[in-house]
Amino acid sequence: MIDVYIDGASAGDPGPSGAGVFINFKNGNVENHSIPLGEMSNHEAEYEALIIALDLCIERGVNMVSFRTDSKLIDDAIEKRYVKNKRFQPYLEKAIARIEQFDLFFIKWVPSNQNKQADSLARKAIREN
């Protein structure tokens, strides 16, 4: 099981946005991904970070993952498989379709101070826009 930390950030609402993904393979290998996302809201950036991280894991053939996010919105949406704001429904559907490809998938909300690496990567991506 690998650990994946995700974060989305936006400089404005909407504004230049970025996704940060930190993957710890627990064998001494780690990956840092900083992906510029263009103009979008912070919530959209959080969803994009989730989907990008899921795709990265699938591309690497990983089948057991434990995700961490400091976004209650993302954690709640995945746990309940429901979004209150229908604008985010397509994001949720994309994420669930990917999640179903894993043998084991966990997601856990963590405080921001436990997600600093992904946050730093997301903020770096904003600057790269």
Rank of each mutant, 00 (worst) to 15 (best):
N27I: 03
N27H: 09
G28I: 11
G28A: 06
N29E: 15
N29V: 10
V30F: 10
E31Y: 14
E31R: 12
H33I: 15
H33G: 07
S34V: 02
S34H: 04
I35P: 01
I35H: 01
L37T: 13
E39M: 10
E39H: 03
S41D: 06
N42L: 03
H43W: 05
E44A: 14
A45C: 03
Y47E: 07
Y47W: 10
E48H: 13
A49Y: 14
L50H: 06
I51M: 11
I51Q: 08
I52K: 13
A53W: 06
A53G: 13
D55A: 10
C57D: 02
I58D: 04
I58Q: 01
E59C: 04
R60E: 05
R60P: 13
R60N: 12
R60L: 05
G61M: 08
V62T: 09
V62G: 09
V62D: 01
N63M: 05
N63T: 11
N63K: 14
M64W: 01
F67V: 07
R68H: 15
R68G: 05
R68M: 11
T69K: 09
S71N: 05
S71V: 03
K72N: 11
L73P: 07
D75R: 05
D76C: 04
A77P: 05
I78V: 06
I78Y: 03
E79Y: 08
E79C: 02
R81L: 02
R81H: 08
Y82L: 14
Y82M: 15
K84Y: 01
N85P: 08
K86Y: 08
R87P: 00
R87N: 12
R87M: 01
F88S: 02
F88D: 02
Q89K: 14
P90L: 13
Y91Q: 13
L92G: 08
E93R: 10
E93M: 07
K94P: 11
I96G: 00
I96K: 06
A97L: 13
R98W: 05
I99Q: 04
E100H: 11
Q101A: 08
Q101S: 08
F102W: 09
F102Q: 15
D103S: 12
L104T: 12
F105V: 10
F105L: 12
I107H: 03
K108Y: 09
W109P: 00
W109V: 00
V110Q: 04
P111T: 10
P111S: 11
N115L: 10
K116E: 15
Q117T: 15
A118R: 03
D119G: 00
A122G: 02
R123W: 00
K124G: 01
A125C: 04
I126D: 08
I126F: 12
R127F: 00
